[in-house]
């Protein structure tokens, strides 16, 4: 307990400086809101449901996007990784599409899909898909040949070996692809909500900035941080649960 407090001592110092500086008006409220106002805003917003609603919407979008990206990424990774023929044709396309800074596709998705939920999901999928797909593919390429041979010796067919050997072998790769995808997805979601949305934490933060409600803006930032943390830990837990043999 004490160890934990000691570890976070710099945060306590910084928070105290923040609170003292703003409370005694050494720092103007147009620069930083009082820290207690941030927490008050957080408390109020969660209590009356406003912040809770925005958080839920954002979380739904990210999780939905990640789930779809995961299904598509694993499917494409398996397809390219298992088929020699398609590998040569598909990989250059997929790697080539990587060269575009995918954030630049955001306007295109707005033109094509409008500002609705489909566009949000597609934006998130477009960034989360690639790390998951490439990791699935890499994982397949690195399946230990001796495991395949051992299974062949036991009398398993190629189809059975996919389930017995290859799928378990690529699980850790999928999980680490997912871990890379999480912060990218959250970032894209925030911007998608900033440039065109009627709800979500990204929209809340940018509106609060435009109306100089800095306490509310910081409340949104805190919630986004918590969301990022929660998602990362969730993927970590998913990894422990699906791959218990990895330590």
């Amino acid at each position: 307990m004490l160890d934990g407090v000691l570890y976070f001592y710099p945060l306590i110092i910084l928070a105290s400086l923040w609170e003292i500086g703003t409370a005694f008006e050494l720092i103007g409220e147009d620069v930083l809101p009082r820290l207690d106002f941030v927490f008050a805003s957080l408390w109020r917003g969660l209590g009356d449901g406003e912040l809770l609603w925005h958080t839920a919407v954002s979380l739904f979008r990210v999780v939905g996007g990640l789930v779809i990206a995961c299904l598509l990424g694993v499917a494409f990774g398996l397809w390219t990784g298992l088929s020699k023929r398609w590998d040569a044709y598909l990989m250059p396309l997929l790697v080539g599409s990587q060269a575009f800074p995918r954030s630049a596709l955001l306007p295109l998705f707005i033109v094509w899909l409008g500002l609705g939920e489909t566009q949000k999901l597609v934006v998130i999928v477009s960034v989360a898909f690639f790390p998951i797909m490439i990791n699935t593919y890499e994982g397949l390429k690195r399946v230990n040949e001796s495991h395949v041979w051992a299974a062949l010796s036991m009398g398993y067919s190629n189809r059975e070996i996919l389930r017995l050997v290859k799928i378990p072998a690529i699980l850790p790769y999928i999980i680490s692809g997912l871990r890379i995808a999480v912060p990218m997805s959250v970032t894209m979601m925030v911007v998608a909500e900033m440039v065109g949305a009627y709800s979500g934490l990204g929209q809340l933060v940018i509106i609060a900035g435009q109306t100089y409600e800095l306490a509310k803006m910081f409340a949104g930032i805190v919630l986004l941080g918590l969301m990022g943390l929660l998602l990362d830990r969730a993927v970590e837990a998913l990894g422990r649960w699906t791959t218990p043999w990895n330590r």
């Binding site: 925030v190 900033m194 609060a208 949104g220 930032i221 941080g225 969301m227 990022g228």
Partner: peptide, 21 residues
């Protein structure tokens, strides 16, 4: 500790703040 506390926040969320500043 200070840097890793801010790490999970998507940094683009700070853009409106930087614009205010």
């Amino acid at each position: 500790p200070s840097i890793s506390t801010i790490a999970p926040v998507p940094k683009v969320a700070f853009l409106p703040l930087f614009v205010v500043w």
